[in-house]
Write a protein that binds this DNA or RNA. Structure first.
Lengths: 162, 162
DNA sequence: CTCTACCTGCGACTCAGTCGCAACTCCACG
DNA sequence: CGTGGAGTTGCGACTGAGTCGCAGGTAGAG
């Protein structure tokens, strides 16, 4: 899911900014860094507890906050596919769009030069200094769309949460 | 803020689908329809109470749910500028990008043909059936960016919540 | 006008995220 | 290495958005 992420990228970011490296932080960073899917704060806590059994919810939230502020991770909504959770991923150089399937819950990432052009256009025409980009599409992935052709009512219901 | 919205557009949507038109629903719809800015559920409740003093929080949420399901309104995050609220706006034909300024809180809307091309590209290349689009940029508007040139530390802090 | 399916208020609940405080720990400096 | 203190943490109580079941109320078809 994050093929271009180098091992230790986030850790290096912390070190280079002179941030205190505690065991709790190392655990949270390791989990985000090595995650194969997008994790919310709750599952981040669970996974961090494997390394650091006594780590608290508050610490996880505070670490997320820290990493966000240092622009090492990005916060995602992923169309709030379940509940009102937020998800996190390591920040990469190139922005990408998240495609969330309402039926099967799969998250697919998509990059396009068009997107960078769009960003430039905004910076030029509106003179807006873009810092954080959140680009999410909700709908039906290829498999789910073809399995349910014509069931329009079903699709209305599926979009209920968003 | 919503120049292209026709008076009664949402109401017509409800009527055409045979939805029961209660006074409470009329009140909520009127508020969303005539709002000059993006409203969250709380301020929607407050404003609806002017017309319908006894309307309850739950009814507002249930009506929002209904309008979302019928694709008459869109849910926005607006970079969660304050708290974890969600905002709502009448759905328009053309998708637009929301630019949220972290410093002054202004929300600016932006449309571009590039965005529609991007949407087409996704539909074509990934075969994803796009239903809901959420496109939000956080950063600094023209005025705020020029007032605070070079204060990088300040800007880090400003992005803390997102 | 009446009947019923649908809508609503109420109050209790859930669940993500926050905060203040006292105890703890990283690590710069000696 | 030891140690002092700023920065970090666990804990528990809190906030605030949003949800739900239920009993009573109401729109609107007939």
């Amino acid at each position: 899911m994050k093929p271009e992420v180098q091992r230790g990228q986030v850790l290096d970011g912390l070190l280079s900014k002179g941030i205190r490296l505690t065991f709790r932080r190392r655990a949270v960073v390791a989990v985000i860094q090595e995650a194969r899917s997008h994790l919310d704060a709750g599952s981040l806590l669970d996974k961090a507890r494997v390394q650091e059994p006594n780590i608290d919810r508050a610490t996880v939230y505070r670490t997320i906050e820290l990493l966000k502020r240092l622009r090492l991770i990005d916060k995602l909504n992923l169309m709030h596919l379940e509940g009102e959770k937020h998800y996190y991923e390591v920040k990469t150089e190139s922005n990408h769009i998240h495609l969330a399937c309402f039926r099967c819950g799969a998250i697919r990432e998509f990059t396009s030069p068009l997107f960078d052009r769009l960003k430039e256009e905004i910076a030029r025409e509106v003179r807006f200094e873009v810092r954080i980009v959140r680009l999410e599409f909700g709908g039906f992935c290829r498999a789910c769309a073809s399995n349910h052709q014509g069931r329009e009512e079903d699709r209305n219901t599926a979009t209920l949460k968003h």
